[in-house]
């Protein structure tokens, strides 16, 4: 067999809503068996992309193939091979977890017996057996999410779409979802995950596409992207805003990089490469200069900074 076809392949997808382009030439290739993160701010087009790839929405132009089938022309074939977990847990609140699984199994055209067997198997796997006959209304947020995920796995899909699967979950429930995604990836399921959290993509994804204004603006492994974005940052808060200028000069010298100043928070910050060395050197420089710092902190770049940097680069290139 020749090199296997990618599990997800999108070429030049476009989708407009009135005057706004939700997707504006969206390209994506996800090799089979990998976890791919689609990272972007609200309104970047992540959900539109997932809705097109999961056959819920028709693109205005462009093509996409999922699990080997065209999402528009062969949508019925695609639907037997995908699972979709949307932003809200799309399960019936009145029915029990088991009733939900059996109903969706029937709608995947499993026989009654097969649907019931599958339901029990999934309840067990997602640690919902005890709550299986209780109405979903009584489930916690994490349990609902697990049931939602279980429903999307009724047919053991080869491609799973997760649209912001951990939004609104507490850290424990979030970790549970992450574990499940890792487990699925280990069994060879291709996962496309959208998220607003850099950390989530970092934890789960083999590769990340950063999306903004309907297009992919950067792509790579989490490490590659971080290197591109810049290393850790150092933030210094001074006592008195009149010292901001001097603090910025010192920080620029130590970091060897451009600094940004936030007057309201009396803060200067800059990217640094060797975090510990930069920190000691900066503290020494401040002591030597007799400058008082209220707070000095090292931190990873935030998603805001990632976007600011990536989108600014885009705009510079366009200018």
């Amino acid at each position: 067999m020749s090199s296997p076809e990618p599990a997800i392949e999108a070429n030049g997808l476009r989708k407009r809503y009135g005057d706004t382009a939700a997707l504006d030439g969206f390209d994506l290739v996800v090799p089979a068996g990998t976890v791919h993160g689609l990272l972007g701010p609200n309104g970047a087009g992540k959900t539109t992309a997932v809705r097109i790839l999961s056959t819920l929405l028709r693109p205005d132009s462009g093509t996409a193939r999922v699990a080997g089938f065209d999402v528009v022309r062969a949508h019925q074939h695609v639907r037997y091979r995908i699972g979709l977990v949307g932003q809200h847990a799309a399960v019936d609140e009145v029915l029990s977890g088991r009733q939900n699984l059996v109903m969706f199994g029937r709608l995947y055209h499993l026989g009654t017996r097969a649907a019931e067997r599958k339901a029990d198997e999934l309840l067990n796997r997602f640690r919902l057996t005890d709550a299986g006959n209780k109405p979903v209304k009584q489930y916690s947020g994490g349990m609902r999410r697990r049931l939602d995920l279980a429903v999307s796995l009724v047919l053991a899909p080869s491609v799973l779409f997760l649209d912001e699967p951990t939004t609104g979950l507490d850290p424990r429930a979030r970790n549970e979802v992450w574990d499940e995604v890792r487990g699925l990836a280990a069994t060879g399921t291709t996962v496309l995950l959208t998220t607003q959290y850099l950390e989530e993509a970092d934890q789960l994804a083999d590769a990340i596409s950063v999306i903004d204004e309907g297009r992919v603006i950067a792509e790579g492994t989490p490490d590659e992207l971080k290197r591109r974005i810049g290393a850790d940052r150092i933030d210094v808060v001074v006592h008195d805003s009149v010292d901001l200028g001097r603090a910025a000069d010192l920080l620029a010298k130590v970091a060897g990089a451009e600094t940004t100043t936030d007057v309201d928070r009396r803060q200067v910050s800059a990217p640094v490469h060797d975090r510990m060395a930069a920190l000691t050197e900066l503290v020494r420089a401040f002591t030597d200069e007799g400058l008082a710092a209220e707070d000095v902190a090292l931190r990873r770049p935030t998603l805001d900074e990632v976007f600011l940097r990536l989108t600014n680069h885009e705009k510079e290139r366009a200018a």
């Binding site: 056959t55 949307g86 809200h88 847990a89 799309a90 969706f104």
Partner: peptide
Amino acid sequence: ARGITDRFRSLPMAPSA
């Protein structure tokens, strides 16, 4: 509103169902 219609539409069930 709850996204159940979307889930139905992502399944291979008859659209009329």
